[in-house]
Design a protein around this nucleic acid. Structure first.
Length: 928
RNA sequence: GGGCGCAUAGCUCAGUUGGUUAGAGCGCCUGCCUUACAAGCAGGAUGUCACAAGUUCAAGUCUUGUUGUGCCCACCA
């Protein structure tokens, strides 16, 4: 134990301890060996939401992983066998796009220039180089993951699980091939799921144009028409129009149904069809139908057998079907050109500014195209059970309101397009027979299509499906694939039984659909025997986690999302360098409300750094106050307490310690982590440092010194244990510096954190039970000291220490004041505090819970100022008394309120009236 | 269009099942380098708890409505 430095320097402490923890495998846990005495220890497990393998740590990761680490480290302190499973996600589109860009920039080549095999080599090489970065960054944050278990979604064991899940779901009829409208990203050149499409309001134009009727005619409304007027935001696709639709009940057009209009270019007759999807009230009530390029239009087309005319290439340029003049043109250029051409032809009626929602590709950030294509789809399994998992309570969301979001999504669930036209990912384990064309392929015929984990026995006769799986179709196996599923062998089965289901999933709401719901459904379907439906008991056994802790998103100070392009995302490593990992952890949790979004602000992170320093200095003071005795256990410290020497302040701080321990314990029932930082901050800084330590300074010279130091050691010990999950490094360092480490133990985490009851019991055992009355009296003394300080400040004597006070009190209270006079003098900064029998002449007075105190101004009191001050106080009291009186005189209140509340009001009023009388007396004395 | 939140001090937010005179941090003002800590200490000012009605002995807290604001979902061209 060396002397601590004056200012805490985390850079010296944090890496040192992290390295030691790693070297000693402090975070590693595994199932007990078969011959171990304890075969079924209490366990606690979490799987990390795997970050993208090439990702960089951002503030969202900091919050998410700090919260997980808090849960994990607390579980260790509770003596549980604890596993935090780390790993990374291959992140199909994100990673592939990144490497494609690098290849393009450095070699001027596309992935197709390189070919699939060569390109994948580049991605693996890139992953080799960058794949560990984010994990190292998590280590710098202090994350206590079991790194020996680090997993990657393309590892062989994981790939096996992914293939197994595909084959099983296929066999059970959940996966099928279909030709459907999908969301197509013209930049990434792949299909996307609905969840990967972000709707954004866009300012554009609504074009109103005319389609010439083949035969002009008069409608039921008496209007003679030669044209139909149609509104569209996308004139560039009109070449793909194969009909115009009207509502069947629309009197304006009913007579035209079955007739034709001229599509202007390429000029062709297209029919007018009736369909209820048309909104009579929108625009003119006529809808041009482009089945290839709009979902609704596609459905209308299906109902009316309309041809699908695809005028777009996969990359978003127009093709030859759009006509020679548009062939090869970008879709947005084509929009202008099509509008111009309509205008030339005299068919453009008007163009008005218009704002509508357009779907954008989440990754590439370009407008997606609805596109008809052949894809693999998943009909979600166990949807009903997934709802029941939550409604039955097998899975609980915190905060609970997210359950509604989850259930609502399940109510409206659509089949999931799981194939991606990418190379980086799990290649779909389907093989097509060579020589059988796509047109004649029969998916039910095993001679045409082969689906298995290992492929056909005669691979030379088959071609494997080119597509890979959506990344989320592999990451949804994360909670069970990492604990040995599907082929449990030896000890992994035991591990699975011990660590699955995991206790809690910690994540933010934006991936409830992407990941959380899908994990639940896949677990319900795949963990255990194949079954049509599940009972509540089976659901409870299969779910991947018991709790889902949803935390908020971190935004910048103006409430904007953090993004690279805005440059508003602080670099966590920079913050860690300046404030320490513990400081950043404390700071970010301290500003993270459970409900709404978090507005990041650096000054608020500084609080964490400041708190670290406070903790450090309080420990330093302890070290300087006297030699550290036996601190190796709760019992050893308690044994150093002489119960006869415990004073009011000791009882008070011990009682606050127990209360704070209970408050922190409650936090882990609801995951309201912010409450933990607030409770610990208020207790350690506000109660312990500001009051207890200051009050005990005098005693350190006296006979009670040993007991006082033992109480300090006890409080600091409990604080370190309570704080360790949040601030692991500094607490570990202080644990060792102050001699808390027990014989034969290496780390703080090996200590069982005492429960509030255990603390009380340990104290009781040495005859030092906490005396609540004494604690309350100490509180009164604190209030009295506050009053004395305030009186000094009012007379500009705040910094003087030679101030003289007198007081008037009854004998009982005077005894208390006399008993603790030294402490009061010291903390109030006064020279004397003498008991007087009557009010001294012309001295300003203050009413305290224990006495009326008078400040000796040596005759120089400003009478007028004093009167103003007292009048103000009197006013406050009058208000309080009037309120209490009104209530107490109300019979209904006295009759129906709980007795304690009524009594409280009475006591309060009595005390206030006493105070009031005192003030009135003082005021009167100034009148004379 | 449907759903979910939020609205409390200048700022960011706490405020348990309704129950004394509504709190914290930051910022601001005053005074302190008081021997652990200036990343600190002491003191101080600032609130029609968005608005309106209702329930109740009692409402920041519960109910309804209004306004403002944020987010999620949805095929109005």
């Amino acid at each position: 134990m060396s002397e601590l430095a004056k200012t805490y320097d985390p850079s010296a402490i944090e890496p040192k301890w992290y390295k030691t923890w790693l070297d000693e495998k402090a975070f590693h846990a595994e199932a007990p060996a078969p011959d171990a005495p304890e075969q079924n220890p209490e366990t606690y497990s979490i799987v990390i939401p795997p970050p993208n393998v090439t990702g960089m740590l951002h503030m969202g990761h900091v919050l998410d992983n700090t919260l997980q680490d808090i849960c994990i480290r607390r579980a260790r302190l509770e003596g549980k066998l604890t596993v935090w499973q780390p790993g990374t996600d291959h992140a199909g589109i994100a990673t592939q796009t990144k490497v494609e860009r690098i290849v393009r920039e450095t070699e001027g080549k596309t992935r197709r220039d390189l070919g699939r095999e060569e390109f994948l080599k580049r991605v693996w090489a890139f992953r080799e180089e960058n794949g560990g970065i984010i994990l190292n960054q998590l280590q710098r944050l202090g994350a206590s993951c079991d790194w020996d278990r680090t997993s990657f979604t393309l590892d062989p064991h994981y790939a096996k699980a992914v293939l197994r899940s595909f084959v099983e779901l296929y066999k059970r009829g959940y996966i099928y091939r279909g030709r459907r409208m999908v969301n197509w990203c013209p930049k990434s050149l792949t299909a996307l799921s609905d969840e990967e499409v972000i709707m954004k309001p866009q300012n554009g134009w609504l074009y109103k144009m005319r389609y010439e009727l083949v035969e002009a005619s008069t409608g039921l409304d008496g209007v003679h028409r030669t044209h139909l007027e149609i509104s569209t935001t996308r004139p560039e696709t009109l070449m793909g129009d194969s009909a115009v639709a009207v509502h069947p009940d629309d009197p304006r057009y009913a007579h035209l149904i079955g007739k034709c209009v001229w599509r202007p270019f390429p000029r062709a007759q297209i029919p007018i069809v009736a369909d209820k999807a048309v909104d009579i009230a929108f625009g003119t009530g006529c809808l041009k139908v482009t089945p290839a390029h709009d979902r609704t239009d596609f459905e209308i087309g299906q109902r009316h057998n309309l041809p699908v005319i695809d005028v777009l290439n996969p990359d978003g340029t127009l093709n030859a079907l759009a006509g020679a003049e548009f062939d090869g043109m970008d879709r947005f250029d084509a929009r202008k050109k099509a509008a111009a051409k309509l205008e030339e032809m005299g068919l453009l009626v008007e163009r008005e500014k218009y704002s509508n929602n357009v779907g954008f590709s989440e990754r590439a950030d370009v407008p997606i195209e609805p596109r008809l294509s052949e894809q693999w789809f998943l009909r979600y399994p166990k949807v009903e059970e997934a709802k029941r998992a939550v409604t039955s309570g097998a899975i609980k969301f915190f905060p609970q309101r997210w359950e509604k979001t989850y259930l609502h999504w399940l109510e409206n669930i659509q089949d999931w397009c799981i194939s991606r036209q990418l190379w980086w990912g799990h290649r779909i384990p389907v093989w097509y027979r060579k020589g059988v064309s796509e047109a004649e392929r029969d998916y039910a015929n095993p001679m045409h299509v082969h689906v298995s984990e290992n492929g056909p026995a005669d691979p030379e006769n088959w071609d494997q499906e080119e597509d890979v799986l959506d990344t989320w179709a592999s990451s949804n196996l994360w909670p069970f694939a990492n604990f040995g599923w599907p082929d449990f062998e030896g000890v992994t089965r035991k591990e699975f039984d011990l660590f699955y289901p995991t206790n809690v999933l910690v994540t933010s709401f934006d991936i409830i659909f992407f990941w959380v719901a899908r994990m639940i459904m896949s677990a319900l379907e795949l963990v255990g025997e194949a079954k049509e439906s599940l009972t509540d008991e089976e659901i409870a056994r299969r779910v991947p986690f018991r709790h889902v802790f949803i935390h908020s998103l971190i935004r910048d100070e103006q409430g904007r999302k953090m993004s690279k392009s805005l440059g508003n995302s602080p670099d966590p490593l920079d913050l860690i360098a300046r404030f320490g990992a513990d400081g950043v952890r404390f700071g970010i949790v301290n500003i993270a409300p459970s409900g709404s979004d978090i507005f990041f602000s650096e000054p608020r992170i500084e609080i964490g750094r400041n708190f670290s320093n406070k903790l450090w200095n309080a420990s330093r003071f302890r070290q300087m106050s006297g030699p550290v005795g036996d601190n190796q256990s709760l019992q050893a410290i308690c044994a150093r307490i002489d119960p006869a020497r415990l004073d009011l302040f000791d009882h008070w701080i011990l009682s606050r310690m127990v209360e704070t321990s209970a408050a922190v314990e409650r936090v882990f029932e609801t995951y309201e982590m912010q409450a933990m930082t607030q409770a610990l901050y208020a207790f350690f800084w506000g109660d312990f440092c500001d009051w207890y330590v200051e009050a005990s300074k005098a005693k350190l010279q006296g006979e009670a010194a040993q007991t006082t130091l033992a109480v300090q050691d006890l409080v600091i010990r409990q604080t370190l244990l309570l704080l360790h999950p949040l601030m692991p490094h500094i607490t570990e360092e202080l644990w060792h510096q102050l001699g808390y480490i027990a014989e034969g133990q290496q780390f703080i985490q090996q200590t069982r954190i005492p429960t509030p009851q255990a603390l009380k019991d340990a104290l009781a055992k040495v005859g030092a039970s906490i005396d609540d009355t004494a604690a309350a009296t100490a509180q009164n003394i604190n209030e009295m000291i506050g009053k004395l300080r305030s009186m000094k400040a009012d007379y500009n004597l705040g910094s003087r220490r030679d101030v003289k006070f007198q007081y008037v009190a009854d004998d009982a209270k005077a005894a208390i004041v006399e008993e603790d006079k030294d402490t009061i003098l010291r903390l109030a900064g006064a020279a004397t505090l003498d008991r007087a029998n009557a009010q001294p002449e012309g001295a300003p007075a203050g009413i305290t819970p224990l006495c009326t105190a008078y400040l000796d101004l040596l005759g120089s009191v400003d009478v007028e100022a004093e009167r103003v001050r007292l009048s103000k106080e009197l006013e406050k009291l009058d208000k309080a008394i009037a309120g209490a009186k009104a209530r107490l005189s109300n019979e209904k209140f006295v009759a129906s309120a709980p007795a304690a509340v009524v009594q409280g009001a009475k006591d309060q009023m009595a005390a206030n009236e006493e105070k009031k009388a005192e003030i009135e007396r003082l005021l009167a004395s100034f009148q004379s």
